[in-house]
């Protein structure tokens, strides 16, 4: 796996090269979200306009560029992607190129959008995945993090998707002690089955101690970093930056987690950004190192409806 060590001011920095652009992400709704979750790693909210929407035309230009780079899958995040008025059209366009995954809070979905996406999904040979963020198995555990009433609204959104024939991947950020995973997941499964989702897919994410999460819990200490020694014998494909890039309205960044970091902007287009190595000097890089695959669709927890 490619990695090298850069020396800056006498300090050796662990650096990751992109091996292949497997995942192309889009910050499609910028930092705008209808919710203000208190663990959000980029502090998205109804008033955060630091990053703007991506237009269908802009996404399409990147999709076309991605063909020559051999991209394997496309991911759409925000903010809340479905605040972008072109989101449905963007997903429909993407399914002509490859598999698409959209990360949503499922609280703003409209039935005609879902109907259009069902039709597009059926017409495409590629999978359309919905990842729905819910951070507790009931209102008492979810709403303090995501906002009053959000559990009921997200539950209704999941029901809409399931009724339409999708198997949404419920994504929960671990805001409980890790030792409680099995109990929490069992409760998630029970709740989802009661809501009519009889074979729930659930993905657990570690909390990223950046953005709003710094206030909710704490930030990374200076010592919480990946060192060059830690990469000896390590499978670097566990790092998102080894196989992914993200397009925002500012350019192309190293990964979906670090877009607010000035050094994350690697270029103005994909070609440029795929050639740049990246020094993994941030605290969040340690979480990526520890847990791996945190941005992919694969689960890190108990799933399949069994507890």
């Amino acid at each position: 796996m490619p990695h090298s060590n850069n020396s800056v001011m006498g300090t050796t920095l662990p650096t990751i090269s992109l091996s292949h652009l497997d995942e192309l992400w889009f910050q499609v709704s910028g930092t705008l979200c209808n919710l203000t979750c208190n663990h959000c790693f980029i502090s998205c909210s109804p008033t955060n306009n630091n990053f703007g929407f991506l237009s269908l035309a802009a996404v399409h230009a990147s999709l076309q560029q991605s063909v020559t780079l051999g991209v394997k899958g496309y991911y759409f995040t925000g903010g809340e992607p479905f605040l972008n008025p072109e989101m449905t059209a963007i997903l429909i366009a993407t399914l002509k190129y490859g598999p698409a995954t959209v990360l949503t809070n499922a609280t703003v979905l409209k039935q005609d959008w879902i109907d259009a996406l069902v039709a597009a999904s059926r017409a495409s040979r590629y999978s359309l995945e919905f990842r729905v963020s819910i951070d507790g198995f009931d209102a008492a555990t979810n709403d303090p993090i995501r906002g009053a009433g959000t559990f009921a609204r997200a539950r209704a959104g999941v029901q809409q998707l399931v009724k339409a024939g999708f198997l949404p991947i419920i994504t929960a950020t671990r805001t409980w002690p890790q030792g409680n995973d099995r109990t929490v997941l069992a409760n998630f499964i029970k709740t989802l089955k009661e809501a009519g989702y009889d074979r729930p897919r659930i993905k657990l994410l570690p909390a990223l101690q950046i953005g709003a999460e710094i206030q909710r819990s704490r930030g990374y200490t200076d010592a919480q970093r990946v060192t060059s020694e830690m990469l000896d014998g390590f499978d670097n494909s566990q790092f998102v930056c080894e196989h992914a890039r993200i397009v925002t309205d500012r350019g192309v960044h190293v990964c979906p987690i670090l877009i607010e970091e000035p050094d994350s902007l690697l270029g103005t287009d994909l070609q440029q950004a795929t050639q740049a190595d990246y020094a993994i000097t941030h605290g969040a890089c340690l979480t990526c190192y520890q847990y791996g695959a945190i941005c992919s669709n694969s689960s890190l927890g108990l799933t399949s409806g069994d507890s």
Binding site: G70, V71, P99, S127
Partner: peptide, 13 residues
């Protein structure tokens, strides 16, 4: 390499 997650342009090279 699933059918639904393997784009043509990924396989071609």
């Amino acid at each position: 390499l699933w059918e639904s997650t393997s784009p043509d342009h990924f396989l071609e090279p």
